[in-house]
Design a protein around this nucleic acid. Structure first.
Lengths: 80, 80, 80, 80
DNA sequence: ACGTTTGCGCTTTAGC
DNA sequence: GCTAAAGCGCAAACGT
């Protein structure tokens, strides 16, 4: 079949794009792991570091949610 | 079999306890749904309410994580 | 203000009712977790148990769907 | 303090590297999400696609396990 | 090295 | 029907 199965080809391309992205994602995760290992070899406590990272992420998230709530109030009250 | 299959009976009891608890959990979820509906019928905007609940939950969580981080520091430094 | 801010009070009460229910819901989830742990300490495989629970839930759901269908038929035929 | 707090600075740099990597990881996850959305708009069923990706990942994993086992045998037999 | 515990990603569910 | 959030299961990471 010279024209190929277009739909199947398209699906395959989508799948491959996803798999490629997931490989990159995994690569990033591995890099994170390496940084923790490097920090550990420099005498830092990784458990503490992980909690710091988690806390900072949560605080950022809370801030964003608070802003979103404020926007919701404004809209509910018709204040621009 | 007068003595019964003890292991099977025990497993069945565990399963039934789990199923009972999950029913209660679902019941609680239904109740939450009802409260939102009641609030809505009293003129409140449920979307805003949900954001408020979510924000309060997150703030509580951040506070708990901050405390946990402090404990981690204490342990890492050997301060009781 | 002796009369208080009625609307704000009412909203606060709704929020608190929701939060209380969600705490109970979480408590039920924790109990489920505990039962699985107890079963595990008695030598049962929790992964298998979870599959059993999921399967029974599906069967229950299927049964309910069949009953609902039967009701639909009855209504359509005017049979109470 | 011209010399700065070296340890604190080093820790901060580690944290920032981690946070940067996690942002990139999240970016990849968002891209994956976008590809699924694009596939969906082209008429594909994303749930099925996810199953295909999971299946292929498992097969890859199985293959890797088999290769690892083969290496173990080789080492055990002293065959480099 | 193993078992426990926590964090992360996915799946499923609820709301709009 | 779709989108967003929450609960669940899994897997990595820590401690023993």
């Amino acid at each position: 079949m010279a024209e190929g199965n277009v739909a199947a080809d398209q699906l395959r391309l989508f799948i491959e794009r996803i798999e490629r992205l997931e490989e990159e994602k995994k690569s990033m995760a591995d890099d994170v792991r390496d940084v923790y290992a490097e920090a550990k070899s420099n005498g830092y406590d990784t458990k503490t570091m992980r909690k710091i990272v988690a806390l900072r992420r949560m605080e950022t998230h809370v801030r964003q949610e608070a802003d979103a709530l404020l926007d919701t109030y404004r809209n509910a009250l018709g204040l621009a």
